[in-house]
Design a protein around this nucleic acid. Structure first.
Length: 589
DNA sequence: GCCGTTTTCGGCCCGACTGTTTTCAGTCG
């Protein structure tokens, strides 16, 4: 049972409670929702924690829920949950996955029309809506009936509450929108918000804030966006539209004087904000997106132009958005001991670059020459870089031929180092496959030609965690194998990660001077941020690389830096933020 | 049902928007 499945069960329990008696169970509902949220975002699978007897310590899980989780994980069911859940028709729960459906609406429809079959309930609702029956219910009308039909239709097309886009794609949409908004003279400042500003690896909706003294003009301009498909809502302060790609963009406007509080509120995360507000309440203050005031009063809010001043009133350091996940950052900010996170300007090179050098590779080749990639690296301000084409295909060559190709390539790179002597240093690397049996695709004499090798898994992804861990450790055991690239193998929204025993990988890297890669390719963003954080805690060193196959992809470094920042990385944790000499020493160690 | 930031008892984040309403309920973030 996965964290997502467990979280879903707890959410259903909360929903069942709120259908039963929202007042009576008010705080149980909050507690179950909180626990569900916390488990959904837990870095470790609960079944692993349970196996290791470490189930306590999840925020929002106290003795009662912990006991029930243990029951769930050992027997597959919980008597108490079944009792609560059976108090409402099972057909309520599938409807809760549909946007705009909450427990009340779902229960109302299910009971009014006696829809008992969970397997058909969504289709049943469509049917009665099309027959015009929902509009006749007290509290419903033509409009809400139409909204229900549209919500279900969009749900069917995959716009579920959980469909998310990868970060670089979302950022591109957002930048286009911000550029459009800035065409309006009423826009003083625009910023991303929400998970996009926190730079989560995937983003649901795009949220944007605008500082303005003329909200109406900004909202008019926003809703007139040429690429919109339709307007979802339009108020005096916020508006939401769907753009032609089917994605939702939300806009919030505020006066410049109150912009700090708005940014803070809508950047989230929810867990960070709830924690911050609870803390503020204990200090006698009430926080909102408008500002701060004494609790239990109707005083006007004190406005904050910047987030820094907002946090400062609470006695906190400004918290970088990437850290706002309620995983200890508030405690550190209170003590003024937040780490100084890595920034893009700290990056001094890129080590996972596929050029078009004729290496006759096992996988795809790059589009640009080494010279072109070097030129781009210079523009990016790098002082070194490493080429790491895929190893020459071993099915099409003998190992002697592989050696000859790499030998020629070494000479070529040596000449580049002479040519660019005073501008940039070039490392001769390779991306070598770790074969299913754990050996490397090319032999020792060829590996000796390199400054070092990136190693990675590109085949047989479906091994179990024991076998995959052994495979990777064996691959890393060659002295020239220095960096494990895209360590989990996941492709966002496409392919899950293979399972590794991270504690073993971490121990090995630490002991044998190996590094893990944060691969910045949009579909990868691999290592995942939560594993980056674990690795850094252990003292593992990391590379951030773009895995570029063309020079325009070299700009993706910012997304790798985002992942690192979400893992609380400082410049000291990242090897390709080091000066050249230190990095060279590391390769030779 | 959880939690300790003034508390091991007595609190529990806050507001916008929509649709159907003459004052609110439901959902969302």
């Amino acid at each position: 049972m996965t964290n997502l499945e467990i979280s879903k069960i707890l959410k259903n329990v909360a929903s069942a409670y709120s259908i039963q008696d929202e007042k009576k169970y008010r705080f149980q509902i909050i507690a179950y929702d909180k626990a569900a949220e916390s488990i959904e975002h837990s870095p470790t699978e609960l079944r692993e924690l349970y196996k290791d007897g470490k189930l306590s310590g999840i925020p929002g899980v106290g003795p009662t829920i912990q006991g029930r989780l243990e029951e769930l994980l050992s027997t597959g069911k919980v008597a108490h949950f079944e009792e609560v859940l059976s108090s409402v028709p099972a057909s309520v729960f599938p409807l809760l996955d549909v946007p705009s459906f909450g427990p009340k609406k779902a229960f109302r429809l299910v009971s009014e029309f006696d829809l008992q079959d969970p397997a058909t309930v969504i289709a049943d609702v469509v049917k009665i809506a099309k027959e015009g029956k929902i509009a006749t219910l007290p509290g419903f009308g033509e409009k809400s009936q139409a909204d229900i039909l549209r919500a279900i239709e969009e749900y069917g097309r995959g716009k579920t509450k959980t469909a998310r886009m990868v970060l670089p794609y979302a950022m591109e949409l957002a930048r286009k929108m911000i550029a459009y908004l800035e065409e309006s003279p009423a826009v003083i400042r625009a910023s991303t918000l929400g998970s996009l500003r926190r730079r989560r690896e995937t983003v649901g909706d795009i949220d944007i804030a605008v500082a303005t003294n003329d909200p109406k003009a900004v909202l008019d301009h926003f809703t007139a966006y040429p690429h919109k498909e339709r307007i979802i809502e339009r108020g005096e302060r916020t508006s939401s539209i769907i753009v032609s790609s089917g994605k939702q963009i939300d806009l919030m406007v505020e006066s410049p004087k109150g912009f700090g509080a708005l940014l803070q509120h809508f950047t989230g995360s929810k867990a960070h904000n709830v924690h911050l507000r609870e803390y503020a309440l204990s200090k006698g203050l009430s926080l909102s997106d408008y500002g701060i005031r004494k609790r239990d009063t109707d005083d006007p809010y004190t406005l904050y132009e910047t987030e820094e001043s907002f946090y400062a009133v609470l006695g906190l350091q400004w918290v970088p958005p990437e850290m706002r996940e309620n995983t200890g950052e508030i405690e550190l900010a209170l003590k003024n001991t937040l780490p100084t996170l890595l920034e893009i300007k700290d990056m001094k090179g890129d080590f996972h670059l596929h050029s078009s050098y004729p290496i006759e590779p096992s996988h795809d080749m790059g589009l640009n020459s080494m010279d072109e990639m070097i030129a781009r690296a210079l523009e990016l301000g790098y002082t070194y870089l490493g080429f790491s084409e895929h190893n020459p295909s071993i099915s099409k060559h003998t190992q002697k031929q592989v050696f000859d190709i790499l030998s020629k390539r070494k000479d070529f790179i040596d000449k580049l180092n002479v040519k660019y002597k005073n501008t940039i240093r070039v490392f001769s690397l390779l991306e070598t496959d770790i074969l299913p049996n754990g050996s490397l695709a090319i032999e020792d004499d060829a590996l000796q030609l390199l400054d070092g090798s990136i190693v990675s898994v590109h085949s047989a992804f479906d091994m179990d965690s024991d076998a995959m861990t052994q495979r990777v450790l064996k691959g890393l055991s060659h002295p020239k194998a220095k960096i494990l690239a895209h360590p989990t193998g996941r492709l966002l929204n496409q392919r899950p990660a293979y399972e590794l025993h991270w504690d073993q990988i971490f121990d090995y890297c630490l002991k044998h001077n190996k590094a893990l890669e944060i691969n910045a390719a949009p579909q990868r963003l691999d290592l995942p941020d939560i594993i980056v954080r674990e690795a850094i805690k252990k003292g593992i060193k990391l590379f951030i690389d773009t895995d570029s196959h063309a020079i325009n992809q070299m700009d993706l470094m910012e997304y790798g830096v985002s992942v690192a920042r979400r893992g609380w990385a400082t410049p000291n944790d990242i090897l390709n933020a080091l000066p050249y000499n230190e990095l060279k020493d590391w390769f030779e160690k």
